[in-house]
Amino acid sequence: MNAAALTAVRPEATTQNVTLAKALNLGLREAMAADDKVLLMGEDVGTLGGVFRVTDGLKAEFGADRVVDTPLAESGIVGTAVGLAMRGYRPVVEIQFDGFVYPAYDQIVCQVAKMHTRSHGRVPMPMVIRIPFGGGIGAVEHHSESPEAQFIHTPGLKVVACSNPVDGYWMLQQAIACDDPVIFLEPKRQYHSGKAELDPSADPLPLFATRRVRAGDDVTVISYGPQVKTCLTAAEASAGEDGPSLDVFDLRTLSPFDLEPIFESVRRTGRAVVVHEAHRTLGPGAEVAARITEECFFSLEAPVHRVTGFDTPYPPSRIEHQWLPDLDRVLDAVDRTLAF
């Protein structure tokens, strides 16, 4: 990790109240200013500023050579980013929507992920692949998916998900400074929904670290990305009704996992619920549940419960709110684990 590059640019910025999209934009800007090898590539990232405006203004500031509007071909984007990384650049690739990543899947899995191993470390792939993920925006097919399990299952990739503007700002810079390829998942329905105080002079949490976002005693609730907000809302609701007290975690990093804080919690609570939008079977929750079982077997009072997207393709948007995990489904699982 290039810590020097991160600290070099911090100072004069003042605290701002920003959306996730703006925080990511600021993070990209800091990273580009810190290291002229950082390039942005993707569909509509330049003149338009990205369909979600995450790269807004960056082409004007850094030029078309560093903010590249590419042809509309995802494998081409990632494949040329591989070549740029070979040449010493640090490409930050935007995949416009989660469901558009599959044409690039071969390049990501067979080239990006394996180059370090193949070359015995002589050809690192310091690349960030940004993917707006998750549902809830009323979109058509392919625009609301949660493909993280595909990448968690691929050795050689690192996979992280931010859940709020402050993390977005720091985690993106840390991912860009990382010498390994990072799949960077952004909860798209939160890009413009709500702001947070961003203090660029604060010390960030390391990239590959899980964070407790609310302390509680009865049930450990584990999530990441867009569902962190759901879980926090559930925890508040439960507390407001004198219900069970939830110990809520934002995983932040999905590969590698950082599960020690989770184990510590489950050893106290004896109960865990994992929440994500990705499909259930072999989703991240399956791995988290397995590891909790391995590490906390004698502390468990109930099987680990999962609240997830179902094993169906993402549904038509008029019923997506029923398909997605929500406050009620989370609390239902909490109740079931307590009643076990």
């Binding site: 494998s75 081409g76 990632v78 494949g79 040329t80 980013a81 591989v82 070549g83 740029l84 990384a85 070979m86 040449r87 010493g88 650049y89 490409p91 390049q107 080239q111």
Partner: peptide, 9 residues
């Protein structure tokens, strides 16, 4: 594709 990216570099 890597060739093309390297050339862009």
């Amino acid at each position: 594709l890597h060739a093309c990216g390297y050339a862009m570099g």
